[in-house]
Simulated scan of single mutants.
Amino acid sequence: MQTGLTDIEIIQQVLKGNQSVYASLVNKYQNYVFTIVLRYINSREDAEEVAQDVFVKAYRSLSDFRGESKFSTWLYTIATTSCITFLRKKKLDVHSLDNEKVMAHAENIDGGMRANQVEQKSRVTMVNQAIAMLSPDDAQVITLFYKGEQSLDEIAQVLGQETNTVKVRLHRARQRLKEKMEKHFRAEVSDLAM
């Protein structure tokens, strides 16, 4: 497998006929995609199936990637669309965007529990519970910005909105998250401030 290539260079090679380098994109983004899918689909087996399907769809649509955003942003869009399609077909309930199991999995990818991870995990759980209390729109923009580490421009592209609209939505979502934290986790928030 080749190393040191950017996502764009890998995509260009795949489009020129070197399909084997696509595996490096899969390896690079498999945990990212699986984490996104688990936010929607609670069953691990179904999530694995959908995550695999995301990479198949991405491969088939690679020529449509224009490079105007990060590859991860484009992949996020495919992943969320695939999840929604899967859930519609299965007629399952959509689970919280911030399922505690997802965060536990993401935090434990390195396999070890460090001394402060327990405290960090309880903070993450508290924040996830507060995010789960938000409207789906607020939770989505908070998740994309903080957990997906997407820029305002990238979020605007994913959501099909103007950047300024996303900036306002994020500001309002932060305010509502702060209100939820202060209302439901007052003691924990005051401990964190110390």
Rank of each mutant, 00 (worst) to 15 (best):
R60H: 12
L92Q: 13
H95K: 09
V127A: 12
L62R: 10
A106P: 03
A79W: 01
R174P: 00
Q13A: 11
S96Q: 11
F145R: 15
I155A: 01
I41N: 00
T143R: 07
S151W: 04
E45M: 00
G67C: 05
Y40F: 15
K101W: 05
L144T: 02
N108Q: 03
K147N: 12
K167E: 11
E49N: 04
G67N: 07
Q140I: 03
S69E: 07
E179R: 14
E154N: 11
E68I: 08
M194H: 06
K28R: 13
N99P: 01
Q140N: 06
R66T: 15
A132P: 00
F71C: 10
Q13M: 14
Q150A: 10
T125M: 07
S43M: 00
H184E: 12
A139W: 02
D53M: 12
A23T: 09
K121H: 11
V158D: 11
D138L: 02
N18I: 09
F185V: 05
L97A: 04
V94T: 08
V102N: 08
R169Y: 12
Y32L: 11
I131T: 04
T165E: 14
G160P: 03
V124I: 07
L144C: 04
K90P: 09
T81R: 13
A51V: 05
Q175H: 05
Q52F: 05
H171M: 14
L15P: 03
L25T: 06
R88T: 10
D98S: 15
H105T: 08
C83W: 01
M126T: 13
A130G: 04
E100N: 06
D64M: 12
S24R: 06
S72G: 12
Q175P: 00
T77G: 13
I41S: 00
Y76A: 13
A173P: 11
M113C: 06
I142A: 05
Q19F: 06
G112W: 03
E49M: 01
E68F: 12
G17I: 09
F185R: 15
S24H: 04
D7Q: 07
I78S: 06
V94G: 01
D98M: 15
Q19Y: 06
I11T: 10
E119W: 04
E9L: 07
W74V: 09
V189R: 05
S82V: 07
L192S: 08
H184P: 02
M181V: 10
K28Y: 02
L87C: 11
G67V: 06
R88D: 15
T143L: 14
A156K: 01
I155N: 00
T77C: 08
R186H: 15
M1Y: 07
F71M: 14
E188R: 12
Q129W: 01
D64I: 10
R172W: 06
E149K: 15
V189N: 01
S135W: 03
N18G: 07
F34Y: 07
V54K: 08
S43D: 06
Y22L: 07
I11N: 02
D153F: 08
G111Q: 02
S190M: 14
R186P: 00
C83V: 00
V158S: 13
A173K: 05
